[in-house]
């Protein structure tokens, strides 16, 4: 029963997480302009930004003076932690400033939440992960979460259970509990199930409560997707 956390021999354990991070996508390398916008943005929702860990994306501002930028952000009580897809020229400097480098495909933090600081160009995320497959029933009170990818469930999801994914949710059995897909604002995510009996459906924050799910879709094989800012439920298979 000695779980690694309790093992007195070990000073620490490593755990994967998928903590959502805010990305600052720069479009200008003009520090003054950046500062002006920061003052208003951070001023509007100061609690959201207080010491918030920040990933920097310099794609639109390759020539920025990195040391000055970092100092500026810290002055505004932001905590830059990493550089995403850094140009080669900036890598050494980033490391010396204590920033981590997020290179395409190097792991979990490579797919952070796109933030409201600036509306970014289409998501840069390409690293496909294998996702999570569950073969046993998901019972009442249990939550299964697939960070970064799809969740595939091959057994029933009970009423009172919750299945959650950053990508799509597939349930090849009755879905009686709650299903949430694209939880980090991925509106293109979908929910698929072979028998829809769900209590709650949500994609990227849009949702349907049990009594809003169309009666005609109950017990049917369906897909659920976002269209025009609403969740729609469609029959699966040949029409």
């Amino acid at each position: 029963m000695a779980s690694p956390e309790r093992d007195p021999q070990k000073a620490f354990t490593l755990k994967g997480t998928s903590t959502p991070l805010t990305v600052l996508c720069l479009r200008s390398s003009d520090l003054e302009r950046i500062e002006r916008q920061l003052a208003t943005t951070v001023g509007q929702t100061p609690s959201f930004f207080q010491h918030a860990p920040l990933v920097l994306d310099l794609e639109g501002a390759a020539g920025v003076e990195l040391q000055g930028l970092v100092a500026l952000l810290r002055r505004h009580k932001l905590a830059p932690v990493a550089l995403r897809n850094p140009p080669k020229a900036l890598r050494e400097q980033a490391i010396s400033l204590g920033l981590a480098l997020l290179l395409p495909g190097n792991g979990r933090a490579g797919k952070p939440r796109e933030a409201k600081v600036e509306t970014p160009s289409p998501p840069v995320v390409t690293s496909a992960t294998f996702g999570v497959t569950v073969t046993q029933p998901v019972r009442s009170g249990q939550v299964v979460y697939a960070p970064q990818g799809d969740l595939v469930v091959l057994a029933p999801v009970s009423s009172g259970a919750e299945v959650v994914a950053d990508g799509n949710v597939h349930v090849y059995a009755p879905l009686r509990g709650r299903a949430l897909a694209g939880v980090h604002d991925r509106t293109e995510a979908r929910i698929f199930c072979s028998s829809l009996e769900a209590e709650f459906l949500s994609i990227a924050g849009h949702y349907l409560m049990a009594d809003e799910i169309p009666e005609a879709m109950r017990g049917k094989a369906v897909l659920v997707c976002v269209e025009e800012d609403r969740l729609v439920v469609r029959r699966l298979g040949p029409l």
Partner: peptide, 19 residues
């Protein structure tokens, strides 16, 4: 039935067999 379902989840998670 709901409570039994809950307990079935615990039997799959919190027993020595599972360990």
């Amino acid at each position: 039935v709901r409570d039994s379902d809950r307990v079935l989840g615990l039997l799959d998670a919190k027993t020595r067999k599972v360990e």
